[in-house]
Design a binder for these strands. Structure first.
Lengths: 342, 342
DNA sequence: GTTAGCACTCGACCTTAACGAGTGCTAACA
DNA sequence: TGTTAGCACTCGTTAAGGTCGAGTGCTAAC
């Protein structure tokens, strides 16, 4: 037995219906609602075949069928292959960004809001990995006699900052001089590269040793943290709108995964070369999310700097719509934050 | 009929028990568990009186009593009057801050985590109101030929930043010169005051008009936003651990109030002159939170700059513990972020 | 003023029964 | 050979009835 065109059409109808209603789909529903020109008995036979092929599950014998992860996979692959991603959401997305925020952080949190608002799922927006960012300017701003604020401007205007200790004999002018030198030497390099460069620089500038080691310490911290890509969530409580999470225990489980962001970060960092990555149920690799799907896309700051955006919700997800919104949002963020935004 | 010492003792026992168990408290429970030396019948009579006085509610006739908002109010007032706030939590709080983060933002999000972790409720940490912060240093960092990053270091190391447009003829040195002048003129003033001062400055420095108006624009934005005190949440999903929120609808309601932070911000800004503010049920003024209590405390950056921390949970809250943890956390934050931290 | 006793209330929980959506199978049909 | 009508069967859902027990209010005795 093999998957033919009719089986696929029926499977698609079942998935569409289940995504819409969250109710196991029976043969009669398909026969009547989706005008197949086939009786429920025929559908029943096909459904039985589809179950044997692993595309459908049956919660219990007297209920309809629900799509398996394998079915969603097929469905999504089809969606991606056809390139049938609508573009109508682009306008919606743009509309929400009217009052153009200027700070990276604002743009990111706004993006998370818009994503969750448009999709009704939980959204995830990840800033680019710190270690990959290229330094544009580096400046030390005096804070007190003993300390200075290290400001690093990078691609896309993202800013990393930290208070570091400086020798007490550094006034504003001295700090500025160091800043100029450092910008000259480190500009254009990634934070990781800068860490290596600064060691060399340390030899030339004995007087400013303490400052340099402060900067080095910070770069090291950023580097070892794997870049501390920051993850912003939106609409976490949206999950409660779905009947599959009317059980409080399940909801709690989902939300606690969101709160410890590490696992999610790892998942999102593994975004492949594709425009989209769709992880369905067990494909997430996180047991607590085996009934969830995660769809991610990227936005670009420069050639080799990118961030990731995503949407997480039940496997029964409106993949088409989500892909379309993510696509629009990715473009929008690239526009707003990308290198040539001037 | 009036409230006497014995009634109060019984009421206290009822509240303690209900806070612990969330189960309506019966007369027998009090008589046996709390060694009053009184029979259940006597307790029953007293409880009937307490109900008439408005301190107790009865979900239905054959259930025990639960404390009313009025009862919690009495209970909390007693707690505050006695000054019986334990200090044992100070050590716990400090322990969680071992790896001292240096950025304000990190400290704040860590504080939210610690608060929700120690109390098992949802925590709120509000940064100080922007408009009240005093400028320490102000510096422009070049970002591109057309724009610069405005960095403002304020009390407690908080930093406000924004990208502003500058004339194309400003190189790094020119920006630095402007920065020095601005720091000289605006340093020590609040952001609100600075807005007025910069208008005057604008006359003296015609050449740098564009930069100044950029700075002014930013200050204006901060000012008109009411300072955009930022609210950080911790442990939002903790609420699902409480039986009163095992109903998903209620939980959804609670979480959506948290997500639109405005109402909460307003509430937290209204923190009075007291060390603590406790708002019980309807006292919050937010209908969705009529079964919740909000306890807030402050921390200080300088004499007239403070932020607010708080905990929100069911009215059936462990007020004693929460007050103690908040007290410890307030001190800790004042230590970490306060003016004289060097 | 306190307490034992008792009738009463009412939600929680269990059992049972009816219902119906949906299935698998068989036999008839084109 | 594929399709379909028919039918017995399954099993979760819902409603109804019944028991249980925690808790109350009241009364009368101490």
């Amino acid at each position: 037995m093999t998957m033919d065109a009719r089986k696929f059409r029926i499977l698609q109808a079942i998935i569409d219906d289940y995504i819409l209603t969250a109710i196991p789909v029976g043969s009669r529903t398909i026969s009547k609602k989706y005008e197949m020109g086939l009786s429920s008995a025929t559908i029943r036979n096909e459904m039985s075949d589809l179950e044997e092929l692993g595309y459908l599950d049956q919660p219990h014998v007297s209920a309809g069928r629900i799509p398996s992860a394998k079915a969603y996979r097929l469905y999504v692959d089809q969606l991606l292959k056809n390139g049938s991603i609508r573009t109508g959401d682009a306008a919606d997305v743009r509309a929400y960004f009217t009052n153009r925020a200027q700070q990276m952080e604002d743009v990111i949190s706004r993006a998370a809001q818009v994503l969750s608002g448009l999709t009704h799922y939980t959204s995830l927006v990840m800033s680019p990995k710190g270690a990959e960012l290229r330094i544009r300017t580096l400046q030390l701003v005096p804070v007190s006699s003993q300390s200075a604020l290290l400001v690093i401007v990078t691609d896309g205007g993202i800013m990393r900052d930290s208070v570091i200790r400086v020798g007490s004999d550094m006034d504003a002018d001295a700090l500025y001089a160091v800043s100029r030198t450092l910008t000259e030497r480190l500009g254009g390099h990634t934070l990781s590269e800068a860490l290596a460069l600064i060691k060399e620089t340390e030899r030339d500038m004995r007087a400013e040793r303490q400052v340099l080691s402060g900067v080095a310490e910070f770069l090291d911290a950023v580097d070892s943290e794997g870049g501390k890509a920051k993850l912003t969530l939106g609409g976490a409580s949206n999950i409660l709108n779905f009947p599959e999470y009317s059980d409080v225990e399940k909801a709690k489980c989902f939300l606690s995964v969101l709160e410890t962001k590490e696992k999610l970060l790892k998942l999102m960092e593994n975004h492949g070369e594709m425009a989209f990555t769709v992880r369905i149920g067990p494909e997430t690799g996180i047991p607590e999310l085996e009934d969830c799907s995660l769809v991610t896309a990227t936005y670009r700051l420069s050639d080799n700097t990118h961030g990731t955006i995503g949407v997480i919700g039940p496997t029964r997800m409106q993949y088409g719509r989500v892909l379309s919104v993510l696509s629009a949002m990715g473009k929008q963020l690239t526009d707003l934050l990308g290198q040539d935004k001037e």
